[in-house]
Amino acid sequence: MTPFTTLTAIAAPIDEPNVDTNQLCPTRFNKVPRGPAYARVLFHDRRFNADGSEKEHLLNVAPFNRAQIIVADRNWGSGSSRESAVYALYEFGIRCVIASSFGDIHANNCYKNGLLPVVLSDAACAALRKQLREHPGSTISVDLAAQTVIDPQGNPHRFDIHSVRKKCLLEGLDDIARTVQYRDQLEAHEVVYRDERPWLYTKNI
């Protein structure tokens, strides 16, 4: 996983609550193997007509087509568990989404792919989006170690993140590397557990 440390980049405002993962990646694209093709998948049915021509959409036009940060509203990434929604964001170039809340599964999928989900208050998100609309192309700075977002006007906004998630993102660690060091504990757990519920391990039918 590519680490996430600091980022100063153009941010795109998306004034819409409850953006579900079907919007981020329409289901028919789930079968596409991970790769650069996902850049076009992001918001595909809102950005492109059936013939492939572009529709009017914020992310299709400069400067927002170069955005690496999205400032959203509440409940970003609700719905399906598809990780392809994160692949679409990532391949488009997005490395950080700021919202007042996230779909739980989507937020987890972001962490596991080096994309930082930042939770700020509804009011802070609304104020950020207003600044970005009024000054298109202005940048936001994110410092994960300091847990701070600096808005285009220079105001700092502190955010919370779980210490383990922070460490994994900063160092680009994946979970399996952490897990294998607990192999003995897992095996000890399994021995007791299997003894308690032997019927769970009878031969499959």
């Binding site: 599964i105 596991k112 792919n113 383990v164 994946d174 979970d175 399996i176 952490r178």
Partner: peptide
């Protein structure tokens, strides 16, 4: 869970 977490479950039968 998403694909990364599922891969973790496949490889370890555990999840964080």
């Amino acid at each position: 869970i998403g694909a990364s977490d599922m891969m973790h479950v496949m490889a370890t039968q555990t999840i964080w």
